[in-house]
Simulated scan of single mutants.
Amino acid sequence: MTARRLKGPLVQTKVFLPPELVRAMDERARRLGLAKSELARMAIATWLSPDGPEQLEAALARRLDRMGRVLERLERDVGISNEALGLFVRAWLTATPPLPEAGRAAREDKGRERYAGFIAALGRRVSAGRTLAAEVLSDPEGPARPD
């Protein structure tokens, strides 16, 4: 709304503002396509409005609620990841017998090769947006087992 559309007389007043605030006001008025006096009027009216603090509090509450939900999902996903890793390590340590020293270099080479393949597969999954958490949540029974 511009000053020309306001009903009633307007009163000119003079305020002193720090230069950085004036620059911010100039930039905002330019971006919004408003006169600086109109931007100042709107800002002062918002600040003095009795509903202003309640609206701000409601907006902050909505934002905090949204952030809380995001944190809950992150906590759930990290918990699933930790549990999956723990189960895998336990199963691997239980099922893997100690290996003899003979052929150690070949096993280390094969281990590096497998690790490189693992990192490549992980990179593909992450870049595609696929996650273990999504798979687990979409199919809590797990893959069908052959009879």
Score class of each variant (00 low, 15 high):
residue 130 R to L: 12
residue 141 E to P: 02
residue 134 A to I: 02
residue 116 A to F: 14
residue 43 A to K: 02
residue 125 R to S: 11
residue 130 R to M: 12
residue 113 E to M: 10
residue 107 R to W: 07
residue 33 G to Q: 01
residue 77 D to N: 09
residue 50 P to D: 01
residue 69 R to F: 12
residue 124 R to L: 11
residue 45 A to C: 07
residue 134 A to Q: 08
residue 45 A to S: 11
residue 84 A to V: 11
residue 19 P to A: 06
residue 62 R to N: 12
residue 26 D to R: 05
residue 74 L to A: 06
residue 65 D to K: 00
residue 26 D to P: 00
residue 7 K to H: 08
residue 35 A to G: 10
residue 109 D to V: 12
residue 50 P to V: 00
residue 140 P to L: 01
residue 103 G to V: 13
residue 125 R to D: 08
residue 118 F to D: 08
residue 115 Y to A: 07
residue 123 G to D: 07
residue 119 I to Q: 11
residue 145 R to C: 02
residue 146 P to Q: 09
residue 84 A to N: 07
residue 107 R to D: 06
residue 13 T to R: 15
residue 16 F to C: 11
residue 131 T to L: 02
residue 27 E to V: 15
residue 37 S to N: 08
residue 97 P to L: 02
residue 69 R to E: 13
residue 103 G to N: 11
residue 142 G to V: 03
residue 57 E to S: 15
residue 66 R to M: 07
residue 117 G to L: 10
residue 124 R to Q: 11
residue 34 L to M: 06
residue 78 V to N: 02
residue 93 L to A: 09
residue 115 Y to F: 04
residue 96 T to L: 07
residue 19 P to M: 01
residue 116 A to Y: 14
residue 111 G to D: 07
residue 72 E to N: 14
residue 146 P to L: 14
residue 68 G to M: 04
residue 47 W to V: 07
residue 115 Y to M: 08
residue 9 P to W: 01
residue 17 L to I: 05
residue 68 G to D: 14
residue 129 G to H: 08
residue 63 R to A: 09
residue 35 A to W: 04
residue 66 R to H: 12
residue 85 L to K: 05
residue 45 A to G: 06
residue 144 A to L: 12
residue 38 E to A: 01
residue 114 R to K: 13
residue 1 M to W: 04
residue 93 L to P: 02
residue 8 G to E: 00
residue 14 K to P: 02
